[in-house]
Amino acid sequence: MSRPTDPAQHPEEPSPAGESRPSPADDLDYRHRTGRLHFSAHARGLDGTALGQLVLRLPGTVMSLLVVLLASSGLDAWLGIPLWAPPLLWLVSGALVFHRPTEDFLARHLLRLHRPMPAEYARLAPVWREVTARAGIDSRTYDLWIEDSEDLNAYAAAGHIVGVTRFALDHLPTSQLAAVLAHELGHHTGGHVWSSLLGEWYALPGRLAWRLIRSLLALAMAWSRRSSWSATALLLVVVGFVTLTTLQRLYGLPLLLLATPYLIAAVGRRAELRADQHAAALGFARELAVVLETMHRAERATGRAAKAAAGRDDAEPRFLDRLLSTHPDYPTRLHRLKPHL
């Protein structure tokens, strides 16, 4: 879901120390609890949004490949490492997205998740089995994780990670928790997660090189301003010449990188709507709508509080910020759910 809510929007209070908190009502219709289940052959696919992610990440990947080749030429000259070895290792490293030990490391140390405790698993596992059964997927295909957070949130990450926050686990009714999990399952089955992660990974060398270039330019500009106006003018001429030459040699490819973040964000918004549709197709449209309405109320309350704290009258995000948002606004998501209600 990836947008937090304010816990103050929920009336439940934590139980005193030493007392067990009662679980939310189990209002889920376990229609697949008994009987034979027919699992689909493939637990993940590649829908249009995932394919769009891969296509839009291609210019960044090409730029990163050029950076890796440039670094490889230096390693070949200094250390005798074959020119083809670093690019090949870099390309093959993308398979780590589906390597479970690597995913465990990412979940624990980067996403700050932990495996469910016995009581948490007893609450979460039956709901997850129902969701995956409705989708025709073996529940063991993906791994369940918990985040110690007081936000209403859930995650789909890497190749097999499905995580929820402790707040969602403790406060959402079973049917609404299932709707949230069905949404995250839709990201996995649609290929949104692995395609986005692969794109980020393969764009990393180019991004790091660009940050290094910007830092060097900032230092050079600071030095030239201290020296004289002629040094600044000379630096601008050199930078302009190098930029023009680079654009000509690379056929304008770097210019595509300027528009890519906005296009990727647009595809990301489409992926969220696809995941909502996936949850609705599994029978959780009404429950997902309730969760989205709750999150919308909490977002507005948080926005009003931030506006009051900053002394501003305008709490609306700027136009470019909206274009860079990877999630549609809640009214749009609720409107798209209407046919399923």
Rank of each mutant, 00 (worst) to 15 (best):
G35M: 07
S228M: 05
A154M: 04
S230T: 14
G18Y: 05
S227F: 09
T332E: 11
V92N: 11
W128H: 02
I161G: 06
G159K: 09
W78F: 14
A315S: 11
R100D: 11
G94A: 09
L172M: 08
A233F: 08
D143F: 09
V162L: 10
H42M: 13
A222P: 04
S230E: 14
Q53L: 00
V180T: 06
A266D: 03
R249K: 14
D314L: 04
L334A: 05
F241D: 08
V68G: 09
L177P: 02
L216H: 11
T332H: 12
L66T: 12
L177M: 05
L216A: 14
G94E: 02
R297L: 11
L288V: 02
P24I: 06
H10R: 11
A156W: 04
T5S: 15
S230M: 11
V242T: 12
V164C: 01
T5D: 13
I146S: 06
T332S: 10
Q53A: 03
L177D: 03
G283E: 03
S40F: 09
W201N: 09
L244F: 11
R123N: 02
W229P: 14
Y121M: 12
Q53H: 00
H42Q: 14
S139W: 12
H38K: 13
A289K: 06
R336I: 06
I137A: 05
R312D: 08
V127Y: 01
G163N: 03
H160M: 10
R140K: 13
L341P: 04
L212N: 11
A107R: 02
L244V: 15
G159D: 04
K307W: 08
R211V: 09
R36F: 10
A85H: 12
L172N: 03
D329H: 07
T326M: 01
E293L: 09
R286F: 07
Q277A: 13
K307A: 15
P14F: 08
G268D: 04
P118C: 02
R300E: 12
H109E: 07
I213P: 00
S215C: 10
S72C: 14
E299L: 05
P331H: 03
L337V: 03
W223N: 10
R312T: 14
V242C: 10
A8L: 13
S64K: 06
P261K: 00
P86I: 13
H109M: 07
Y202V: 10
W84Q: 15
S73K: 15
L46K: 01
P173E: 07
L256I: 08
H38Y: 12
I213E: 13
V237Q: 14
P86S: 14
Q176D: 09
L197T: 11
R249G: 10
H32G: 03
A309Y: 06
P16G: 03
W128C: 02
N153Q: 06
V267F: 02
A259W: 08
A285T: 00
D26P: 01
V127N: 00
T5I: 09
V239M: 11
S23G: 11
R270A: 06
E147M: 12
L66H: 13
M295N: 07
L324D: 00
A315E: 10
L169V: 02
D138H: 07
A306G: 06
L341G: 13
L89N: 13
H99L: 15
R297N: 08
F167Y: 10
P16E: 03
D138F: 00
A301I: 03
I213S: 12
P331K: 05
